[in-house]
Design a protein around this nucleic acid. Structure first.
Lengths: 249, 249
DNA sequence: ACACTTTATTGACCTGGATCAATGTGTGAA
DNA sequence: TTCACACATTGATCCAGGTCAATAAAGTGT
């Protein structure tokens, strides 16, 4: 989500205000995608007071890991993150990518312990929601409670769709599904649905989809040969969105 | 979860009361595993009034599917269920199995539409929680709200663990992880951790783990040859639990 | 007890994608 | 600008697990 790729006004102000850590939700460019949506004006300003705007995270910097104590749910403010879960022997699975307005760390509510490790994919920043205070608030503000449940349920839905990909789809279908999901998320954020910059490496994509790096690389080449997209480095241009939709299973 | 396999007092009364659809939560044998845990006596009796105890479902009967309108979250009262999610071309992925005390349908909160199809694996029954009324209640009862969030988060955790299995584990590790998860869930419910009856078919297990039926069958044979367990039909006896734990990755 | 259907096992063979290996292409530090 | 190192592509080969095929059990209804 680099500044260079912005094509609509939604994020125009983000660069300017990036350093104003205590910017109120009401004037945040993410308002339409974020938690406060649907909250009353005065509820929102109360919520505002418990939210801490963090300093930035650098590429590869850890936001939390299983050894961190769970106190906070994070919302991406700018940039992007990945979460990974580890097997006993160190094998890792990239479970999700997160973009502005999305919540990270909700799987820690059960067990009060982060299940996964979250790392920045690029220079990024987050808002921190102290979970205990969020609980207090949401018992007073039904709409907030509703938002939290909806977000949890949304993550559940996307994990279940990924299960379908991992369990039943071919390598090509997996990669196309992934690209379409990226396309949709960029477009929801006011960027082009057909031309965007991936923030994760080929290795991250391959791992996330249960494939080898080489397979991902070959598939990109193949999709280019079929004139469905172009890709150079991290820059993707989708040439035939509907053809891709037909091939994703 | 057949009556024949009960070995502790936890479920002793369940057979007798099975037909009392309006049995109160307070006297339900599932109390310790279920939603009401931690609720005050009077809150509980209020909750009781919005819960509907359903009639039974037969093996293979559908509890809900994506075309059903979302109004209800279900809790398994007896028996077991599976949920499947479908690709456009009809391929299905078994996303979860559900046992007594577990919640089905939480992925429908986002979008207000069931994402998956839920089917009974055996003769089963559920409690129905009308979601709207549950929302009203949980804004008055913080502990209930907390329970709901925790359940959502728990399902998120187990889905993420399944992602790790599907993405990074070998066929044998997948099957062992699955058996250990079953073992734990039976044991939480007062059944033996080492001797239990699977309620799902080989096909369901294979599908859930992203394997072919034949592979599952061969792996069972192989694990028997290695003296780690015995299996005849659906009856499993784990002979060396700790050896299995070492091999699940 | 019977026939009939569904589910599970076992063997033989095949293939999609992994692995191994070599080379090419950024990209950031000094 | 150059070095150094991480990341990406491409080709050759291999194998875990899938597919196909043939029985064998285990349910299920009559």
């Amino acid at each position: 989500m680099t500044q260079a790729r912005m094509i609509t006004p939604l994020f125009v102000d983000l660069a300017k205000v990036e350093h104003h850590h205590q910017l109120a939700c009401q004037s945040c460019a993410l308002y339409r995608l974020c938690l406060p949506l649907g909250l009353h004006r005065d509820d929102l300003s109360k919520l505002d007071q418990i939210i801490k705007r963090s300093a930035g995270y650098k590429r590869h910097q850890i936001l939390f890991e299983p050894s961190s104590s769970f106190k906070t749910i994070y919302i991406v403010r700018s940039g992007s993150f990945k979460t990974t879960i580890s097997a006993a022997d160190g094998r890792e699975q990239v479970t999700s990518f997160y973009f502005p307005g999305e919540f990270i760390g909700m799987d820690a509510i059960y067990q009060q312990r982060y299940l996964s490790t979250a790392r920045a994919l690029e220079a990024s920043s987050v808002c921190e929601l102290p979970y205990e205070r969020l609980q207090d608030f949401s018992s007073k503000i039904p709409e907030l409670q509703n938002q939290l449940m909806t977000r949890l349920s949304k993550e559940l839905s996307s994990d279940k769709n990924l299960l379908l990909s991992l369990g039943k789809k071919t390598a090509q279908e997996k990669l196309i599904s992934f690209l379409l999901s990226m396309s949709q998320r960029f477009s929801e954020r006011g960027y082009s649905a057909t031309s965007f910059q991936l923030t994760m490496s080929r290795g991250d994509i391959a791992n996330h989809l249960g494939l080898a790096i080489e397979t991902v690389s070959r598939l990109f080449t193949q999709l280019q040969e079929q004139q469905l997209l172009t890709i150079q480095g991290k820059e993707v241009a989708i040439l035939d969105l509907s053809a891709l939709k037909q091939r994703c299973g």
